[in-house]
Design a protein around this nucleic acid. Structure first.
Lengths: 158, 158
DNA sequence: GCTGAAAAGCTCTGCTA
DNA sequence: TAGCAGAGCTTTTCAGC
């Protein structure tokens, strides 16, 4: 932490969240600074860990990735070794975009999976998920419509 | 579409997904091109719609955003007007990162919500979600551990 | 901590092959 | 469709406030 954010920092972060490749010069003029302090602030924000990284967002439709599924997984046993093995396996699969351990649900894990079609989904289930040890149950839901899917997190309103 | 991707394009996209602000020059050398054809390819990929945008990823922990919840929402009626109103409202809330219409679940919508703490979550439920018309039921699950949370989509392995 | 100017580096475009 | 080279722009560093 060790860095107190002011309004300008928050503006910078809000703009960068939406436009990751905004040129420093333009960013500076949008937040009302000249270029040099602006780039210094961005660097400080990176070094303090506020900025986790930069990403290019691709359009799944252009790659024939037309099926997004949420899979809820229940495990038989809950020893650390079993959880670790499951997490490690899921982390290694490219089609698993998200994997989290849940509470308040009858499932243990929820996965978000992105694949081409139902056939590829079936292969994921049969070849990658159900080959895991100690799975007690699986329930899949499919996305009919992505209403919203943003990477930007809510920031304090300055 | 109208653009057939070759191995180099896929390499470029794979690198950019992970490092959104990679300088063109370095990208070029990583994929084995010189700078100019590389920047021309990136531009073509943007214009063809493969690249949806660029984002800066922030670290939620540095902003005291410590509670991620998935909320499953069931609606009473399913007229287009009601669905539209619900989607529009959810789209307008910063703390709603994802909102999608589901099938294969007893819920209609799943939301992914990111807030500071349980208190803020309660406010979201009471002030923003349950004020919606025609909600038949809500079930919340909380994330205990984010095992994986990536923006990169799976690309053909060249 | 900001500004402004100068140096270094990067990107883009047209040209050549 | 790649590579080269020059023009233009961006970033960064440094002195001054």
């Amino acid at each position: 932490m060790t860095l107190q954010l002011d309004d300008i920092d928050l503006k910078i972060l809000a703009l960068l969240q939406q436009h990751g490749r905004l040129a420093n010069q333009e960013l500076a003029s949008l937040v009302g600074l000249s270029a040099s302090p602006c780039s210094r602030r961005v660097k400080a924000l990176e070094e303090a860990g506020f900025i986790a990284g930069y990403a290019t967002l691709l359009d799944p439709k252009h790659f024939d990735l037309q099926l997004t599924a949420y899979i809820q997984v229940r495990l038989e046993k809950h020893s650390q070794a079993i959880l670790d093995a499951f997490e490690l396996a899921m982390s290694s699969y490219d089609e698993v975009l998200e994997c989290c351990l849940l509470t308040g649900s009858d499932a243990d894990y929820q996965l978000k999976v992105l694949v081409c079609d139902m056939e590829a989904f079936k292969r994921f289930l049969l070849e990658k998920l159900t080959t895991q040890q100690d799975i007690a149950g699986i329930r899949s839901s499919f996305v009919l419509k992505q209403v919203k899917n943003q990477t930007a997190i809510p920031l304090p309103k300055s």
